[in-house]
Nucleic acid binder design. Structure first.
Lengths: 163, 163
DNA sequence: TATTGTTATACTCTATAACTATA
DNA sequence: TATAGTTATAGAGTATAACAATA
């Protein structure tokens, strides 16, 4: 892949316009996501797990339905994700005595430990991805991205890739 | 999804740190990709098709192997993509008389027309995604993203999502 | 009758590996 | 024997819809 076939001047002239900012966003974003997935694989979790864990950590005891709603996914998808996290011993389902229909979700001790590890990996990931930028440029980039996210109606902390 | 369960002050205090720039990149990038996919669906193509069409337009007559190499995907994947583009009448495979093993790929007239439409949609997409930013801010953003892309070793115009 | 969670099923995407035809 | 392309197959991921338990 590093041996890209050489493009002569003729081919360059035929190029369909410059790569736009939106394409760059998508390209760099996908790269960042892939690198993050690589990193956390050492913890035995996938990106979708991270969002779920964070939401449970933020508000312990919440139901699967509320997670599905916030993530914008179908409830049966949450079942699969929670199944896998429970198998790994990171979360547990507790029957709610008041309403035995729903499962209150909680992190286990191991889950809390993994969350801590994830934050550490997240920092390293941040430094890796932004290695080309100094502190001021990173702040500037975050500012621009936040402006786009807000205008586009993205929910803070909710990744569209969940759905 | 818009009815996010209210988070009180306690929950906010429990939040596992601020969302980082890398997360924002991935979040906004995935959003941009999804919106673009929506847009081009009216042309009957998917994002992976766009890269393929552009590469064929840039250098007509190239082989499927060379595309696979540049995209970083397996040859059989290119078969499926070219099959679908051929069924839609956007590209054609031409036997190379010199070496009848490989297929020279060319855009059809319809394929050229669709490429033109795609550029139009691309501009509209760009304006949509960057609506929050003025011209100077867009340039600034592109500059920062290009610095990251270069430092991370991304090939210009090649989306990691192809693989 | 409505709601929470679960299962069963099917569909899409993609990779691996075997295969055909040319060289 | 090597190469371009293809097909067959299997696996992962995800959505839909039917279902069971509880309210």
């Amino acid at each position: 892949m590093s041996t890209a076939p050489g493009a002569g001047p003729d081919e360059r002239a035929a190029r369909p316009g410059p790569r736009g900012t939106a394409f760059l966003l998508s390209q760099v974003g996908a790269h960042a996501a892939a690198r993050f997935a690589e990193r956390i694989s050492e913890l035995g979790v996938i990106p979708a797990d991270v969002g779920l864990l964070r939401m449970i950590a933020t508000r312990p005891g919440r139901s699967q339905q509320s997670l599905a709603e916030e993530m914008g996914v179908v409830p049966s998808r949450v079942v699969a994700l929670v199944d896998s996290l429970e198998r790994k011993g990171l979360v547990e389902r507790r029957r709610n005595p008041q309403d035995r229909r729903n499962h209150a979700l909680h992190l286990t001790e191991e889950g809390t430990r993994v969350m801590k590890e994830m934050r550490r990996l997240g920092s390293a990931h941040e430094d890796d991805i932004c290695a080309a930028l100094d502190r001021a440029q990173r702040a500037r980039l975050a500012e621009l991205l936040e402006a786009i996210a807000a205008q586009q109606g993205l929910t803070p902390g909710v990744h569209p890739g969940y759905r």
